[in-house]
Design a protein around this nucleic acid. Sequence first.
DNA 1: TATTGTTATACTCTATAACTATA
DNA 2: TATAGTTATAGAGTATAACAATA
Lengths: 159, 159
Amino acid sequence: MSPLPSDPSEHRSGALLDHLARRMRLRSESVLAPLGLRPRHLVALTVLRDGGGTSQQALASTLEMDSTNIVGLLNELEAKHLIERRRSPEDRRRHVVELTESGAKHLNQAECALAGAEDEVLGALQPAERETLYELLRRAASTTPVVCTEALRADVDRC
Amino acid sequence: MSPLPSDPSEHRSGALLDHLARRMRLRSESVLAPLGLRPRHLVALTVLRDGGGTSQQALASTLEMDSTNIVGLLNELEAKHLIERRRSPEDRRRHVVELTESGAKHLNQAECALAGAEDEVLGALQPAERETLYELLRRAASTTPVVCTEALRADVDRC
DNA sequence: TATTGTTATACTCTATAACTATA
DNA sequence: TATAGTTATAGAGTATAACAATA
């Protein structure tokens, strides 16, 4: 029993994505707990490593999270000295958020620890297939889709 | 800026899965709201369509959700007459949960409506690539991974 | 005694609104 | 007036514990 659409012509990936992400998250929580981190922390650290110093608003936009939740998230990471907040010299309203050296180290350690969780969740796929999956996910995630709720709502009328 | 590991040899898909699933979920909520459904409902309906009549415990195991949350979820779906609960004749403790005709119809309608959301989130991929992605996700989801928290926790020591 | 389902409850995650400071 | 960040708070999602019915 698994969440697959019965009509092969449909092939909606949404439910599958949701399901696998949940499985991965449940296992990641166990793996990251000893490090004092949660999956959400890891996503933020990853973005900061690859995106460099950005404002909190830019971070909120990238993660599609409410900026109020970014505050608490960064507070926790800052308390662990994994990130740093500096006032931007150009615009003193902005906080430039950057990964610390310790943050980068902890991120690498966490990613290594997560290999086991991923092996478990993606165990049905061979290494080459996992690589393909990674590449597809990476490309899909690299674009920031335009949010247009009204247009999406209208879609339901077609059905 | 996007959540990609910087070291190509790592290729951890966990954060990417989390990120894309979140994007999909945010859009799905908008699409499903007019139908009175939420993403979680759709996952359950999909499993029921493909898995046939199962007990609530089996459903909890498949979805890796706590069984107490299954109760509320099914209550909502039953109130909308999208699923039915029947006492199992063999074991009167069990509730056999099945999709109603109306439930199957609403599920198809919802999946059709979700096409727009998926187009938005997976817009960077071509149709053939989306098909590949779907197939990989489907195969990964079709196995129920063994939950072994202790073994996972031990992984962190390697890093 | 063990299992299925349920209720009650607490805890976490997330979003909305109002506030401060800078522009 | 508008923007970046923060705080307070309410809502949804989830898990833990105790219970009822059945095996």
